[in-house]
Every structure is written in structure tokens, then in C-alpha cells.
């Protein structure tokens, strides 16, 4: 089976004014369709950077990132945007919902950006699975953190992305809500076959995944699949 995501000797160096910060120093990483992988590692080791590069939010400095066969390093900004639009879904630690829109509006604008039109069946499936049916007309400020993150989750998967990238999705949640959100991630993975890469600091969260990899100082220290 072909990996849905593959990085080869991936480097990312941030250049802010005169300092150069190498956040990734040759990451080799593969994710196969249907996997639920968590990435763990100390703060500042480059986990978020890896996620951003894999999701096409920023260009790698060196190396290759293949998403569904496309090498992101060779794509233009517009092409990366298009790839992100169709194949990637993001969830962040801070829920990042648009504060002026309702839950439904937040999900709908994602569909609008994807440009596939409104798919009521998909919308119903996702909102039901995430337990949002009753909360759709509420604004983010009127929702609990757990509910907000579930809306963010719905928004991220509404267009059936090949890859769901989650950056510490439970980092701002209490234990109970963390469990709910993690349970839903697992449900998405198992029932809809959603491929997921999730960053976490929490070993309990990592337990929901099918595989755990570890990062340190911008490289993977293990986690090459042992097939």
C-alpha cells in the first residue's frame, strides 16, 4: 500500500531577521491510509512545524513531502493552497472558530471554501457523529470548550480530507471533554476510515491512536512502521 503521507529528509529552517532556527532537521515519516498516528515530543522539538509543513501551510526548506503523491516542496503557493483545500483538514489547540458565525456557519464556510457545495448527507452524518445536532445555531462564545472543539473537528472533516492534522486538540480541554473529543477522533478513524495525525503531550491521549511516534530536536527518534 502507498503511504498517504511521506516525508524524506525534511528540513524547515525559520529565518527571523538574523537568527536561523532549524525546527526540522531531516524528518523521515510515513502515514498510511486509515492510520491514527500521534506525534509526541518535548516542547519546541518541531511538532507543530511538521504539521504545518505536511498540511502545506508553509514551504519546507529542504527535502520532500508527498501528500497523496504530490510533492509539496515543488508546488507553488496557490497549488499548495488548492491541495490543502481538498486533501487536508486542520484542528488546533485553540479551537479557532470564527467568532461571529454560528456552529453551522463555521462548518458551512468550510464547505463554501472547498467549493463542493452543501452536502446535507455528509453534514448530517458528521454533526450527528460529533453530537452537535442540538448546538448548531449557537455561536462559539455560547459553546463549551469541548463543543467548540467538536465544531472545529466537524469543520475539518466535512469535506472528507485525505488527512486530518490535529495540533494538541485536547490541550485546552478538561479531562472529560478531552475524552469525548478523543473518542470522536477514534470514531472518525474507525467508522469513516479517516486518516489522522495528532500531536499531543498527553500519554493518555496517545493511547487512542493506532501508532505513536516520538520527536526530539527536529527529528523522529522512532516510529518507522515495523511492517
Amino acid at each position: 500500500m502507498e503511504p498517504i503521507l511521506k516525508t524524506e529528509n525534511l528540513w524547515k529552517v525559520y529565518r527571523s531577521s538574523k537568527v536561523e532556527v532549524p525546527a526540522l532537521r531531516g524528518v523521515n515519516f510515513e502515514v498510511y491510509p486509515g492510520e491514527f498516528v500521534t506525534v509526541m515530543g518535548p516542547s519546541g522539538c518541531g511538532k507543530s512545524t511538521l504539521l504545518y509543513v505536511m498540511g502545506g501551510l508553509t514551504q519546507p526548506t529542504r527535502g520532500r513531502v508527498l501528500v497523496d503523491g504530490n510533492d509539496l516542496a515543488t508546488l507553488s503557493d496557490a497549488e499548495r493552497t488548492r491541495l490543502r483545500r481538498h486533501k487536508i483538514g486542520f484542528v488546533f489547540q485553540r479551537f479557532n472558530l470564527l467568532p461571529t458565525l454560528t456552529a453551522r456557519g463555521n462548518i458551512a464556510i468550510a464547505q463554501h471554501i472547498h467549493g463542493n457545495g452543501f452536502d446535507p448527507h455528509r453534514f448530517a452524518t458528521i454533526t450527528r457523529m460529533l453530537g452537535l445536532t442540538e448546538r448548531l445555531h449557537h455561536r462559539p462564545a455560547e459553546l463549551s470548550g469541548g463543543e467548540q472543539q467538536r465544531v472545529a473537528l466537524a469543520r475539518a472533516v466535512i469535506h472528507e480530507p485525505k488527512l486530518l492534522l490535529a495540533d494538541e486538540p485536547t490541550g485546552n480541554l478538561d479531562t472529560r471533554n478531552s475524552e469525548i473529543v478523543l473518542g470522536m477522533l477514534r470514531q472518525l478513524n474507525r467508522e469513516l476510515g479517516q486518516t489522522i495525525v495528532m500531536i499531543t503531550h498527553n500519554p493518555e491521549a496517545a493511547a487512542y491512536a493506532s501508532r505513536v511516534v516520538h520527536m526530539r530536536d527536529g527529528v523522529m527518534v522512532d516510529g518507522i512502521p515495523a511492517d
Binding site: 496557490a78 488548492r82 483545500r85 488546533f92 479557532n96 472558530l97 464556510i109 471554501i113
Partner: peptide, 16 residues
């Protein structure tokens, strides 16, 4: 600014 970042993460183009 954050909203712009969110829209971009959702795949919104510059034109959008």
C-alpha cells in the same frame, strides 16, 4: 488576523 489564518488553513486562496 487569526481569522485570516483560519480561513487559509481551511484552504481559502488569496483571492477568497
Amino acid at each position: 488576523t487569526r481569522e485570516i489564518g483560519v480561513l487559509k488553513s481551511l484552504g481559502a486562496s488569496k483571492a477568497y
